[in-house]
């Protein structure tokens, strides 16, 4: 068979993803499943984009963002952690050996803020600990000085 003709017979790769929407709080681990159907092997890549203009460091969100995809239908499971609050879109892109990229449908992820670090409790600790230690140091020095002067007199 003519290789060019065989290439035309190959169907376009498709990607389906589930679920369509996810909600989470910061720090929660989420899972998205995708099914990649392709006649040729390629590489599937997970991407995260912010809809609020927040900078997304993909390395923070997921340890594994690329997976090899053999020919035919492959089911992939993507685990990621919501590290920023806001509205995001998670999607899978197939990078085939030949031809253009194929993007899957977006999964809308809404991440609610969770206050884990507040200045209100940090400032008292940042002031109280050195103040307490400083006071104990001064008291110790004064008591030592009095004891020494008592011995000398």
């Amino acid at each position: 068979m003519n290789p060019l003709y065989a290439l035309l017979l190959l169907s376009d790769p498709t990607i389906t993803t589930s679920p369509d929407d996810l909600t989470a709080v910061v720090g929660q681990t989420l899972t998205v499943e995708s099914v990649v159907s392709s006649d040729r092997p390629g590489i599937a890549h997970l991407n995260v984009a912010s809809l609020d203009g927040v900078y997304v460091d993909l390395e923070d969100w997921s340890q594994e963002v690329t997976k090899a995809v053999p020919a035919h239908e492959t089911q992939l499971e993507w685990e990621f952690q919501a590290v920023n609050p806001g509205r995001f879109v998670v999607y899978v892109v197939l990078i085939p050996e030949h031809g253009s990229l194929v993007a899957g449908p977006p999964v809308h992820v809404t991440v609610a803020r969770r206050e884990t670090l507040d200045t209100g409790s940090a400032v008292p600790v940042a002031i109280a600990v050195p103040a307490l230690l400083g006071a104990l140091t001064v008291i110790g020095r004064v008591r030592m000085g009095r004891r020494d002067s008592g011995r000398n007199s």
Partner: peptide, 19 residues
Amino acid sequence: LSAMTYLAATNRAMNFLEQ
């Protein structure tokens, strides 16, 4: 440690992993 903690706690741009 107080200086370090204060700087970290007042950093509004810090995300979950950075904490």
